[in-house]
């Protein structure tokens, strides 16, 4: 298994009250799966994604990623895992505003010590893969929303991660542009990538092969789609 999660808890201690954002989650995800996580607002989708993406650590339980016991790692070790294993796509793109598309895509490569020349080459190839070969030197404010999200997808891909995580990747896009991004994910999945995405919309979730539904920090259903 690529991802093995057992009895996972995330509790936020707010002084008087304790909020259990995740309340005993068990889930396994294999290589080259395409999973959508759904559920109402506040059900713990983002919390689960952040833990899977090693941005956050669980309060209790076990998380094994690629045979590594991530749940016991500290800061800098997690940073290294994020760099090697994870590619993030955020709802709000999160591009560096002063850097052009190429430099934004290069970013993960800076932190694994890839040389400058090699970085440019890989980033260029990746931008071409997402259809932005002709926009490499544009800054984010010179790109459309859909194009920005493509840059973000290229950045997530550039390190050849084990998993691509996308939290509401179409949330800030109109439905037509959103559909184009989903097509891009479809292609990436076909090319062998493992994709996990969070979404509110059934239309978007339908693109995946498996839908996990959360409610109050628990998995309430986990089934394959018709694809």
């Amino acid at each position: 298994m690529l991802i093995d999660i057992k009895n996972l808890y995330k509790v936020y201690d707010l002084g008087e009250v304790q909020v259990a954002a995740l309340n005993g989650v068990d889930v396994s995800i294999a290589k080259n799966e395409y999973v959508a996580i759904m559920g109402p607002s506040g059900s713990g989708k983002s919390t689960l994604m952040n833990i899977i993406g090693c941005l956050d650590v669980p309060s209790d339980g076990e998380y094994i990623l690629n045979n590594k016991r991530v749940s016991e790692m500290v800061d800098d070790e997690l940073a290294e895992i994020r760099n090697k294993e994870i590619g993030f796509v955020f709802q709000t793109f999160n591009l560096l505003p002063r850097a052009n598309a190429l430099h934004n895509v290069e970013l993960p490569l800076i932190y694994n010590g890839t040389t400058r020349a090699k970085r440019k080459e890989i980033a260029k190839d990746t931008l071409e893969k997402v259809g932005l070969g002709n926009r490499m030197h544009h800054k984010p404010n010179e790109l459309s929303g859909g194009q920005r999200q493509r840059v973000a997808v290229a950045r997530a891909l550039v390190n050849n991660p084990s998993i691509i995580l996308a939290d509401e990747p179409t949330g800030n896009l109109d439905s037509k542009t959103g559909e184009e991004i989903m097509q891009l994910f479809e292609d990436l999945h076909k090319a062998g990538n493992t994709i996990i995405l969070v979404t509110h919309e059934e239309d978007i979730a339908r693109h995946s092969r498996r839908i996990i539904r959360l409610l109050d920090g628990k998995i309430v259903s986990d089934e394959a789609t018709k694809n």
Partner: peptide
């Protein structure tokens, strides 16, 4: 702050 978060998300360590 957001830039720092992003850099960390893509693998920047504390020393970086």
């Amino acid at each position: 702050t957001k830039e720092i978060g992003l850099r960390k998300a893509v693998g920047a360590k504390r020393i970086n």
